[in-house]
Design a protein around this nucleic acid. Structure first.
Lengths: 247, 247
DNA sequence: GTTTGGATGGTACTCAGTACCATTACGTTG
DNA sequence: CAACGTAATGGTACTGAGTACCATCCAAAC
């Protein structure tokens, strides 16, 4: 068995010591001693004592930024049919990468969660990191939309992600990706206009009323005849929930 | 003119020095020297160098927590007619206090904003503070609602508040309270069911399909006939997506 | 005046993080 | 094999935040 890299030895020693004595009770010297490296080496691999437990979000952030950027030109090039939904969908998609990143870490992410849950400094650090993603999302969405709405969308996507992530970290979610998709649908539902506006296709409204179906159909027909009959395939469906149950 | 309290002198000296030399280039000793007090006194009034520019959020947090708590018993006591909207409305109301607090600070808040915008450590601190409010809101809402939805509501309210606050800090908002109210209406709109729910009322599902209206109507009829014409108040709508796009 | 308690100041310490330089390890080239 | 050059490592010394402790001062109460 070959000796792991200093970087890994440091991280391993740090996690072990934080668990044994707690974060505040562990000095960088303690970590380097156990890892068998010099103190200088620690700060060569990690900018700070906090950094030793966090993954390199910089890389992931850059990766996602790139993805969104290419998505943006795709949006700009194509027809801006539904800028709202498209931008949101892109972000919903991007956030999957973030969750996947955590899932890949497996138990490491859970050990980190234990720490961030109990050490204020680490919690704040985690929160600041999440805010970076949220900011990136906001700036991406802000193009085709009101600033406020972009802010709300970014915040909602991130909040939904955090919700699912936390559930998984606590062992409450057997299939977090599935839950994330459901949560993203929930978010999309918030921002989808009750009815699709413009465009072609047949708009169908189904509802339950005290009146019988026979009394309603004529009304439907009159409405749908105002619009074009049933043309192009490009359709963006909008499901509006009319009862109060949260999905 | 009487000498201001050491606390105020320290804050004033700190703001001045941060402006002159920058945050990182200013030491606590610099601050205490200009304020004419001992170094010990600084840490007696402020827990850290960062704290000297931030208001006492602890007090405001406690104040708002209390307010929400009394609101919660009011909700629990009265009829939980619309637990969704009531909890959200309470939080929307509570967040006005936060904005008012910033507005009261006037120029001080703007000077702080200059700092938090440029110094990463201070920005992170501000973000962590905001997260405390968001957490409180989430826990308050979580009672009568799904965890996810509570998370989304809290995040949205906070995001909307931040949006308005930032605009005011940048001098872009002549009447921030008015804007906040508008933003809160926007948020409420996100979470308000499109139609009044429950009762003998009407359940509506709207969607757009490639199929023509004539192909859909029979299906509708079959569905509506399965259920009683105008039955019990408890209705769970079925939103059928008729095309392949995400809702 | 004396006492007492709270506010203040000073000193010494720990520890994170930085800067700089010496040293070692290792692959390359002669 | 030896000399060289480069990257990784280690050591030392420093700055500055934050803590602990104790001495001092000041003002009000007695």
């Amino acid at each position: 068995m070959i000796r792991p890299s200093p970087r890994d030895r440091l991280a391993q020693a740090a996690f072990a010591l934080f668990r044994e004595r707690g974060y505040d009770q562990t000095t960088v010297d303690d970590i380097t001693e156990r890892a068998g490296v010099g103190r200088t080496t620690f700060f060569r691999y990690y900018r700070s004592k906090e950094d030793v437990i966090f993954p390199d979000h910089d890389r992931l952030l850059a990766q996602i930024s790139e993805r969104l950027l290419s998505e943006r030109v795709r949006i700009a090039r194509g027809a801006p049919a539904d800028a709202q939904g498209t931008a949101l969908a892109a972000v919903c998609d991007a956030v999957r990468l973030v969750l996947l990143h955590y899932l890949d870490e497996g138990d490491l992410a859970r050990r980190r969660y234990k720490l961030t849950s109990s050490v204020p400094a680490l919690r704040d650090r985690e929160i600041a990191t999440v805010a970076r993603y949220q900011r990136m999302f906001r700036e991406f969405i802000a193009g085709p939309m009101s600033e406020l709405r972009a802010e709300l969308m970014a915040a909602s996507v991130v909040a939904a992600h955090n919700h699912v992530l936390r559930r998984w970290l606590r062992g409450e979610s057997p299939d977090p990706m599935l839950e994330l998709d459901a949560a993203m649908r929930h978010v999309s539902g918030l921002f989808a206009p009750p009815l699709a506006h413009g465009g072609a296709g047949t708009t169908i409204v189904a509802f339950r009323a005290d009146a019988g179906i026979d009394a309603i159909v004529p009304v439907l027909q009159r409405i749908t005849q105002d619009a074009a009959p049933a043309p192009s395939p490009a359709v963006s469906s909008q499901a509006a929930r009319a009862d109060g149950s949260q999905s």
